[in-house]
Write a protein that binds this DNA or RNA. Structure first.
Lengths: 133, 133
DNA sequence: CTGCTTGCAAAACATTTGCAATCCC
DNA sequence: GGGATTGCAAATGTTTTGCAAGCAG
């Protein structure tokens, strides 16, 4: 059951602060690791419950990626897309949008939104790769 | 452990035939439902094992979607993208590609691939909606 | 205070794995 | 026939839920 968000608690603050300060979408386990520093003893069940409630409240957004865990980001960011690094598995935000997507939408279908993920290697992983040879 | 694919079995044929004949990416449970008609008694473990092996063999491809189960499709299709219907939860293939994605890729990052999902309502769900009023 | 929210532990659900029986080549 | 593959059931992993204690407003 999804309980609507009625109170601001230490736990909820730690969770949204973790996502907000990371500046990139985080997985459940990344959220647990980061928010636990602020709130030791924070339970994983609270994270799942909070994420669900915040998504229902349109405060968080889900980012789906092939072959990787789902991530969550703040919903009030400007429209943007994501880069998924196959080296370190981190997800980065990318400015911009290719646009012109309605022309891809099949005849008779209604487009309401879209998501784009580019995958490859981030600068940090490329650096490590060339350092290794 | 992922066992490489060495033999063509009735089960594997039923699984790939289900995906191939559907003409759209299928979830694990869609695959079970469809392939079971051909192969009654087909176990869910076999489906998981087969999917993993076929992905490792680059025969299948994973399609990730926000708020919906992962789907699987044949890997040898022409480059294309997907439409996810929020009404019936079906995933459709869409021809075409917006292109020009390297310009979105951050400086110093290497783009190796990309995925695009448009979401909204399919023609069938739009029809039902207007029929209802 | 009041009742929403939490942490814990148990439950429910999803995925993987061990193994004997079966089936492909 | 021999080894890969399967189905089952058990193991493991993930997400949800019940409930008493704690906390926000």
């Amino acid at each position: 059951m999804i309980t609507p968000v009625r109170r601001q608690t230490r736990q909820r603050h730690a969770i949204t602060a973790a996502i907000s300060q990371a500046g990139r979408p985080l997985s459940v386990h990344e959220i647990l690791a980061i928010a636990s520093k602020d709130q030791p003893g924070l339970g994983i069940a609270t994270i799942y419950r909070t994420i669900k409630a915040l998504i229902a409240a349109h405060t968080l957004h889900e980012v789906a990626l092939p072959g990787a865990d789902v991530r969550f980001e703040l919903a009030d960011l400007d429209h943007h897309h994501h880069f998924h690094c196959r080296g370190c598995d981190k997800v980065y935000e990318m400015a911009g949008c290719p646009g012109n997507l309605r022309s891809l939408t099949p005849k008779g279908f209604l487009m309401e939104g879209h998501d784009l993920v580019i995958s490859g290697l981030c600068a940090s992983c490329l650096g490590k790769r060339s350092a290794r040879g």
